[in-house]
Amino acid sequence: MNVLVYLVPMALGLGLAGLFGFLWALKSGQYSDVDGAALRVLSDDDIEPRDHTS
């Protein structure tokens, strides 16, 4: 059972990494515009700049 002594802290460490990842994403505003993010990925303006406005 000695294996638990380092396996459990490792599992916790990984979990904590996930938690901090989520908190960071929340803090940097990645959840403030979920609909927009889904659509921005489809925009191809970086491939072929085109003037939409004229």
Binding site: G36, L39, R40, S43, D45, H52
Partner: peptide, 12 residues
């Protein structure tokens, strides 16, 4: 109306 508006508005 749609996703294309995001780019159009921001770039304008």
């Amino acid at each position: 109306a749609c996703g294309a508006c995001i780019n159009r508005i921001e770039s304008a």
